[in-house]
Amino acid sequence: MMKKTIKPILWLALLVILIFFPKLFGVYYTNVFVTFAIFATYAVAVNVLLGYTGLLSFGHAMFFGAGGYGTALALKHIDGLALMPAIGIGFLAAMLLALVLAPLVTRVSGTAFAMIHLAFGQLFYILALKLRHITGGEDGIGNFPIPAFTIPGLISIPLKGDPVNFYYLAIVIMGLSLWLMWFFTKTPFGQIQVGIRDNEKRIDYLGYKIPQTKAIIYVVSGAFSGLAGCIYGLFHNLVSADGSLGAMISFSPIIAAMVGGVGSFFGPIWGTAVFQVIEELTHRFTDRVELVMGVILILVVMFAPSGITGAVNTMKMKWHAYTASKAKMEKTS
């Protein structure tokens, strides 16, 4: 009963904090929060594949990058393109890439799946570096126009150079994406997906087609990764090979998901938060972020393989067992 009344209050509190965040914490932390929102969405999109279906991709940066480059190229070359279509183009670019790759990659699983993605991720990184006339090479595409958010006849909100307005756009889009992905896991299809993770053979014997099912999950994961990448590109007003397609862009959501816990939907969000705090702190003392991240990964795998949410659940279970045994003891004594 308690839970039912507390939950809406918590959501309301969260909403209020989100609305007044820029006023409360200033521009610097508002920007930090936008980065967090983008990478949290990205990590959840990766985890839709990793945690819910058991498919590990070492190359999701290609979707993240496809979203970013798609939008940036569209805004650079199409005059007068409105904001929402531009974002839509980024989303569709990533989705299309996933659709093209799906027939190939859904035939393999496990280690081969991970490695194929590593290779394809690297391929797109190299292409972005070498096809200089399209992608701008190492410099990337920067300072492309960012149109205002407009509803014709109603409002027009400028975004370029306005971090607070951009903050609202980003959290609305990222929030919506998270909700859609969460809903996705609650549909009948989402159930099949979890079934594949637990027991692929049985899903087959129940009459579901495995490759097609995997392909849809793959496309959803790729498309939302692309959306995150697209907002990231708009946020920095820059897409570059290292910033949007580099190996770390593929690895960081996996690390976030591992740290937060791949078994739960919200785990990767906590993981991203921890990841960001650590990155922020490390940057202050040293530039050896890679080293610190590596050590964290090793520690997580060796000592807390189910991540923060896993550890919290274990503690909860222990606590329940403890209170139960205590209650029992009181009863007997």
């Binding site: 690895f251 050896r288 080293l291 990964l297």
Partner: peptide, 30 residues
């Protein structure tokens, strides 16, 4: 490292060796 995580499946092993790779790379730079 490897021996202690044999039980946690190929996902754990991939992530662990990825972590090792990052640490080696980081140390080399140091």
């Amino acid at each position: 490292f490897m021996r202690s995580i044999r039980a946690s499946g190929h996902l754990g092993e991939l992530i662990l060796t990825l972590g090792l790779s990052m640490v080696i790379l980081g140390l080399v730079k140091v």
